[in-house]
Computed example of a mutant assay.
Amino acid sequence: MLKQLARLSNETEGRYASSAELQFIKDYIESVDTRISAYEKIQVAEAEIVSKVAEARSAAEPELFAKVSQVDGTSVCQRDFTNILRHSASALLFDDRDRMPENFLLWYKTIVRTFSYDRAAGVTYKLIQEVAQDYLTPEETALFNPILQLNQVVLG
């Protein structure tokens, strides 16, 4: 949203914006209550979400995640996952999927690839989509899932 506003400001300097150019603002305003609600729910349930995802991924593929635990990476993975969840919630709030790769996701992708955690990340970010549905309405989930899917594609 913020980048779109900056781009609109630059593109319309010295002229009025057309209705088509203003549509993204109207769309955002229509979804802002849903975005704020989802953001607040994620904020309140953050620890539960992180815990449920950790449990679900260990149950889904115990051998895969045992490797992470052996190098005492569990706490690091939970910290990183928490950070990604927070960045994802911000991207949801501001309707700015580009915020993820530029601010955090590409950096984390380097770490994931360095330690060969690609498959683990893919499983994790697929599971978060399932777990998040327990906390969000269908409308909130529809806004949040594209961000979570981006995480899964980039990291997994």
Score class of each variant (00 low, 15 high):
residue 74 T to Y: 09
residue 26 K to I: 12
residue 119 R to W: 03
residue 87 H to T: 05
residue 61 E to W: 08
residue 57 R to A: 02
residue 35 R to L: 02
residue 48 E to G: 04
residue 138 P to T: 12
residue 129 Q to D: 14
residue 125 Y to A: 03
residue 43 Q to Y: 12
residue 81 F to C: 02
residue 49 I to K: 06
residue 31 S to Q: 14
residue 44 V to Q: 12
residue 77 C to H: 04
residue 44 V to M: 13
residue 146 P to H: 08
residue 24 F to Q: 06
residue 55 E to G: 06
residue 111 I to T: 11
residue 125 Y to W: 15
residue 122 G to P: 08
residue 82 T to K: 08
residue 104 F to A: 03
residue 5 L to R: 03
residue 89 A to C: 04
residue 107 W to M: 12
residue 64 L to Y: 03
residue 49 I to Y: 07
residue 59 A to K: 15
residue 149 Q to C: 07
residue 120 A to Q: 14
residue 91 A to L: 13
residue 36 I to E: 01
residue 10 N to K: 12
residue 1 M to K: 03
residue 24 F to D: 03
residue 43 Q to P: 00
residue 42 I to Y: 07
residue 119 R to H: 15
residue 27 D to V: 12
residue 70 Q to T: 09
residue 24 F to K: 12
residue 117 Y to I: 03
residue 42 I to N: 02
residue 26 K to D: 14
residue 153 V to N: 05
residue 53 V to C: 03
residue 56 A to W: 07
residue 23 Q to S: 09
residue 61 E to T: 08
residue 98 D to I: 04
residue 16 Y to V: 07
residue 90 S to D: 01
residue 125 Y to K: 03
residue 40 E to H: 06
residue 76 V to F: 06
residue 96 D to M: 00
residue 67 K to M: 10
residue 117 Y to W: 10
residue 137 T to W: 08
residue 89 A to T: 03
residue 145 N to P: 02
residue 106 L to C: 08
residue 63 E to N: 05
residue 6 A to L: 12
residue 129 Q to W: 07
residue 28 Y to V: 07
residue 100 M to H: 02
residue 64 L to V: 06
residue 114 T to C: 04
residue 135 Y to S: 02
residue 51 S to I: 04
residue 39 Y to H: 00
residue 87 H to R: 04
residue 12 T to Q: 09
residue 20 A to E: 10
residue 24 F to V: 08
residue 50 V to Y: 06
residue 43 Q to E: 11
residue 67 K to F: 06
residue 139 E to I: 07
residue 6 A to M: 02
residue 1 M to L: 10
residue 145 N to H: 11
residue 16 Y to L: 14
residue 96 D to L: 02
residue 10 N to W: 14
residue 124 T to C: 12
residue 135 Y to I: 01
residue 153 V to L: 11
residue 63 E to V: 06
residue 115 F to M: 10
residue 139 E to T: 13
residue 103 N to A: 07
residue 152 Q to A: 15
residue 133 Q to V: 04
residue 104 F to G: 00
residue 67 K to L: 07
residue 127 L to W: 07
residue 11 E to C: 04
residue 118 D to L: 05
residue 116 S to R: 08
residue 131 V to R: 11
residue 155 L to C: 05
residue 64 L to A: 05
residue 146 P to A: 08
residue 117 Y to F: 14
residue 141 T to W: 14
residue 104 F to H: 05
residue 95 D to I: 01
residue 143 L to M: 11
residue 27 D to F: 09
residue 143 L to T: 04
residue 36 I to H: 01
residue 113 R to Y: 09
residue 93 L to V: 00
residue 48 E to R: 15
residue 140 E to T: 00
residue 44 V to K: 15
residue 106 L to Q: 15
residue 106 L to P: 03
residue 55 E to C: 08
residue 84 I to N: 09
residue 97 R to T: 13
residue 3 K to F: 03
residue 43 Q to I: 09
residue 55 E to D: 13
residue 65 F to T: 02
residue 46 E to Q: 15
residue 121 A to V: 05
residue 56 A to I: 05
residue 138 P to G: 10
residue 129 Q to H: 09
residue 26 K to V: 13
residue 4 Q to P: 00
residue 85 L to P: 01
residue 80 D to K: 06
residue 40 E to Q: 15
residue 148 L to R: 03
residue 144 F to R: 01
residue 64 L to W: 04
